[in-house]
Design a protein around this nucleic acid. Structure first.
Length: 576
RNA sequence: CGCGGGGUAGAGCAGUGGCAGCUCGUCAGGCUCAUAACCUGAAGGACGUUGGUUCGAAUCCAACCCCCGCAACCA
C-alpha cells in the first residue's frame, strides 16, 4: 500500500479505576466500541495507537484498601492484573495498556504540572477545608454530609443535595458530619494548587465551536453548557500521600489530584509505548502530526474531563513550544520536535447502561461483572451485543431478554444461519469444494455497498448503525439463497446451482471480513473453515507479537476461487 | 432553581417542512438447503400535552407535563 494513503489514528480509552473488576458499564461505555474502531482502522491499513491503563491512585482506592486491610498499592496492582485478564478474554487489543503507577507516568505528570505552574496556569491558594480528626484526613466534598440549607434534607452531600438538587459546598451544610467516622469535622487551613480554567475559557470555547461540529450532539451541547456557565479555577492537589507527589519544595506531603493526573495517562502511555518499541521519539508521530486524529472513548460521566479539562491542559501546555527556555528545561521523554501536541478530534462518549433502572456501580451487584458474563458466553457474543446495544445517545436498560434475542435472532438466525446453510450445502452436495461460478452483479454491488457503509459508520463512530448493516447483508444473503433455491436447481439445473453456491460462498467470505472488527474470534474460525491461507491482518500480528510488521489495506472484499477445498464446517454461533 | 439531553408501533431506536421508518417481537401464509431456521405478507402509531406559523409540522415557534444526567474521580 502506498504510504501516502495511510492515516494515523490515536485512540485513548477511558482509564478504568483500579478498585475492582470490570463490569458491564465499562463494556457498554467504551471498552468494546474502542476495539471495534481500532480493529477496523488497523484492517483498513491505518497506523493505530490505542492506549489506556488502570487509574491506580485516588481516595476511593485508599478507602477500599483500608476496608480490606491491605495496602492501596496492592489493591491497585491486583485490580490492574484482573482488569488486564478480563480485557484479554474479551479480545481487546491495545498497543499499550499500562497503569498510573509507572515511573514514566510520574515523570510526564510532574513535567506537565511544572510547565503549567511556570506558565501561571497553576497557582497556589490557601483555604479552609473540613478535616476529620478521628481519621486524620481532609475530607472530599462527598464525604461530608449534613442538613441542606435549601430544603432541610438531613443527609445532603457536601457537593450536592440529593433531594432538591442544589449545588452545595461542604461549608454550606448545617450540622456537618464526616461519613468516615460520623464525627463532626473541623475546618482546617490548607494550601492547594488551582488550575486556572477561567483563563482557558475563551480558547476552549473557540475550540469546541470549531471542533465540536462532528461530535455527538449531546456531548457538544453538554460541554458548551459547562463553558457557558463559566469555568472556575479548580483544585488540582490533595492532602494525602497516595499518588503522585507535587514536585514543588515544601509540598512533599501532597499529591496531584487524580482528575488532572489520570488524563495525562493518554500521553504518558504513548510515550511508554514508544520506549517499549525501541524508538523513544515515536510517540511524536501520533501526537505532533496535525493529520493524526485523536479519538477518546469514554462514558458519559467523563465528558467534561475530555472536552474541557484535558484539552485545557493541552492548550496551556502547548505554550511551552513558543517559549525557548521552557522548551529547553522541560522536555518530555524522547521529545525531539518543538511542535504542539494534538487536541482531541472526537469524543464518542456513551450514555449510561442501567440495570434495573439504576446506574451500575462497582460497589453493588458483583454478578454483573464482565467476568461473570464471560464464564457463560463467548467474547464475540458479548462484543456484538454491546455494539448492537451501545448507549450512544440515551441511557439504556440492560435486559437479559435483549441479550438472548441478540444472540438467537441476530447472530444465530440471521448471520450464523446463512453461513451454516451455505457451508453445509457445499459440504454435502459438492464434496466440500467451491463449485464453478462467477460473481453476480447484484451480489458484488451489495457487498461493496456494505463495505462502504459499514466503514463509514465506524469512522463516524456510529456503531449501532454499523452493526445493523451487517444484519442487512445477512438478510440480503438469506434472501438471495432462498430466491435462488439451490436445493431445487441442484436437481434441475446443476450449473445454476453451482453459480448460486459460488456466490453464496463469496457472501460468506464478505461477512467474515466485515465481522472482523466486531467478532474477531468467529472470523478466525471462519477463516479456517474457508481454508484461507496467508491473509495478513495487523490485528492478528499485534495480538501475537505485540507489533505490526506490515501495513496494508484489508478492508476490502476478496473472492474465493472455484475449486478451493474447504475444511469441515462447524456451527459458528451457538444458540442459547 | 438553573443548564443539558430525551419523550415516535409491544421493546429498543432512526427520522429537522412534503404519503410515518429500521431492528427485534406478535399474527397469518409459503418454503424446506440450514442451528424448528428462512421467505412473503399482515396487524400494531392522536410522533409527551396544548396552542401558533405554514398550502403542508414528528420536524419550526411558544407554553406546559414527564424521564435521565450535572462539578467530580462514578464507565
Amino acid at each position: 500500500m502506498n504510504k501516502s494513503n495511510t492515516n494515523k489514528i490515536f485512540i485513548g480509552v477511558s482509564w478504568p479505576y483500579a478498585s475492582g473488576k470490570i463490569h458491564l458499564g465499562h463494556l457498554a461505555g467504551q471498552n468494546i466500541t474502542c476495539d471495534v474502531f481500532a480493529r477496523y482502522h488497523r484492517l483498513k491499513g491505518n497506523e493505530v495507537l490505542m492506549v489506556s491503563g488502570s487509574d491506580s491512585h485516588g481516595t476511593p482506592i485508599l478507602f477500599k484498601a483500608q476496608e480490606l486491610g491491605i495496602e492501596p498499592e496492592k489493591l491497585a496492582q491486583q485490580s490492574h492484573k484482573e482488569i488486564k485478564e478480563t480485557f484479554k478474554k474479551l479480545s481487546l487489543i491495545y498497543e499499550n495498556y499500562t497503569s498510573t503507577t509507572t515511573e514514566n507516568h510520574k515523570e510526564v505528570t510532574q513535567n506537565i504540572f511544572l510547565v503549567l505552574k511556570e506558565l501561571r496556569y497553576l497557582y497556589p491558594k490557601k483555604s479552609k477545608q473540613f478535616f476529620d480528626e478521628k481519621v486524620g484526613k481532609f475530607l472530599p466534598d462527598r464525604y461530608v454530609r449534613g442538613t441542606c440549607p435549601n430544603c432541610g434534607e438531613p443527609n445532603a452531600r457536601g457537593d450536592e443535595c440529593p433531594t432538591c438538587g442544589a449545588f452545595l459546598k461542604p461549608t454550606d451544610l448545617i450540622n456537618p458530619y464526616s461519613t468516615l467516622s460520623d464525627t463532626k469535622p473541623v475546618l482546617k487551613e490548607t494550601e492547594h494548587f488551582y488550575l486556572d480554567l477561567k483563563k482557558l475559557e475563551k480558547p476552549l470555547s473557540e475550540w469546541i465551536d470549531k471542533q465540536g461540529i462532528h461530535w455527538r450532539k449531546w456531548v457538544r451541547e453538554f460541554s458548551k453548557g459547562w463553558i457557558n456557565e463559566g469555568l472556575e479555577p479548580r483544585e488540582v492537589t490533595r492532602d494525602m500521600k497516595f499518588g503522585i507527589a507535587v514536585p514543588v519544595q515544601g509540598w512533599e506531603d501532597k499529591v496531584i489530584y487524580v482528575w488532572m493526573e489520570a488524563v495525562i495517562g493518554y500521553l504518558s502511555a504513548s510515550i511508554e509505548w514508544a520506549q517499549k518499541s525501541g524508538d523513544s521519539s515515536k510517540w511524536e508521530n501520533f501526537w505532533k502530526d496535525p493529520d493524526c486524529k485523536h479519538y477518546y472513548f469514554i462514558a458519559g460521566g467523563n465528558v467534561p474531563f475530555h472536552t474541557i479539562i484535558w484539552p485545557g491542559q493541552l492548550i496551556a501546555y502547548n505554550e511551552k513550544y513558543m517559549n525557548d527556555s521552557l522548551w529547553e528545561k522541560y522536555k518530555l521523554p524522547g521529545e525531539s520536535k518543538k511542535e504542539k501536541l494534538n487536541l482531541p478530534y472526537d469524543i464518542p462518549a456513551n450514555k449510561m447502561l442501567l440495570y434495573k433502572g439504576k446506574k451500575m456501580s462497582k460497589s453493588d451487584n458483583t454478578g454483573m461483572s464482565a467476568d461473570s458474563l464471560l464464564e457463560k458466553y463467548s467474547p464475540d457474543l458479548i462484543r456484538f451485543f454491546f455494539v448492537r446495544n451501545s448507549p450512544e445517545n440515551h441511557d439504556r436498560e440492560f435486559e437479559w431478554s435483549d441479550f438472548i434475542d441478540c444472540n438467537n435472532n441476530e447472530l444465530v438466525a440471521n448471520i450464523g444461519n446463512f453461513i451454516n446453510r451455505t457451508l453445509t450445502f457445499v459440504n454435502t452436495k459438492f464434496n466440500n469444494t467451491v463449485p464453478k461460478g462467477s460473481l453476480e452483479n447484484n451480489v458484488q454491488k451489495e457487498i461493496e455497498k456494505e463495505f462502504n457503509k459499514i466503514g463509514e459508520y465506524i469512522e463516524k463512530c456510529e456503531f449501532v448503525k454499523a452493526s445493523e448493516e451487517l444484519l442487512h447483508l445477512g438478510d440480503f444473503a438469506n434472501k438471495y439463497f432462498n430466491d435462488k433455491a439451490p436445493w431445487v436447481s441442484f436437481k434441475e439445473n446443476i450449473k445454476d446451482c453451482e453459480n448460486t453456491i459460488f456466490n453464496s460462498i463469496q457472501l460468506v467470505n464478505a461477512l467474515r471480513i466485515l465481522l472482523k472488527p466486531f467478532t474477531p474470534n468467529s472470523s478466525e474460525k471462519l477463516k479456517v473453515m474457508l481454508n484461507i491461507q496467508d491473509e495478513y491482518d495487523q490485528n492478528i500480528d499485534l495480538e501475537k507479537n505485540g507489533k505490526v510488521s506490515k501495513i496494508q489495506d484489508n478492508w476490502k472484499f476478496t473472492q474465493i476461487d472455484s475449486g478451493t477445498h474447504l475444511n469441515t464446517p462447524e456451527i459458528l454461533f451457538e444458540k442459547i
